[in-house]
């Protein structure tokens, strides 16, 4: 019940923030515009003008999305297996994901204000955070699954309980 209410609250929060952002008066070219000289290629134009009005709502929306992902992971792990190690791993993921998300936006804001950026592995810093940071932050969850498999996903006891369930099912079928 409690997890369901939390999921609903987060989803309503995401929907509310999205509605707030979508209802913000849209400026021309807010989703890109096509220059006539190159067919099929769109341009972004004035980044600050199209980002600033929705930046706060968009920022919070992604924070809630990260929270939603965390809550889904919690729901997938039986309550009795949610040990301190599990919570530590999950909090580490959420913290890192939030940190990367903040870095994307602060470095992007810095670029919009100064028109200066450094490069990291071939991309401007804000984009490098987006490409490398977002992807690699999820590796914490992958690690939690792979290395915590026997503690959080399928313990040996649970595996034995499943085998017993399977055996019972086969017996029942055989007797029918």
């Amino acid at each position: 019940m409690r997890s369901g209410l939390l999921v609903l609250a987060l989803l309503l929060g995401i929907a509310g923030l999205l509605a707030m952002a979508l209802l913000t008066p849209e400026i021309a070219g807010s989703a890109g515009a096509g220059p006539p000289e190159i067919a099929g290629m769109r341009i972004g134009g004035d980044g600050a003008a199209r980002w600033e009005p929705i930046a706060f709502a968009g920022f919070l929306l992604q924070c809630l999305t990260i929270g939603f992902v965390g809550l889904l992971v919690v729901m997938s792990v039986p309550r009795r297996l949610r040990s301190k190690g599990f919570w530590a791993g999950l909090l580490l993921y959420a913290g890192l994901a939030l940190f990367v998300w903040i870095q994307i936006n602060t470095s992007y804001r810095h670029y919009l204000q100064s028109s200066e950026t450094s490069f990291f592995l071939g991309f401007p810093t804000p984009s490098a955070w987006m490409i490398y940071g977002v992807w690699s932050s999820a590796l914490i969850l992958v690690g939690l699954y792979v290395f915590g498999f026997r503690r959080f996903v399928l313990t040996r006891e649970d595996e034995a309980r499943f085998e017993a369930l399977l055996a019972e099912r086969r017996r029942t079928r055989g007797g029918m």
Partner: peptide, 13 residues
Amino acid sequence: PESIMPYGTLGML
């Protein structure tokens, strides 16, 4: 610049 920035030409949302 927007094309190579994190939200590309499509924008944040």
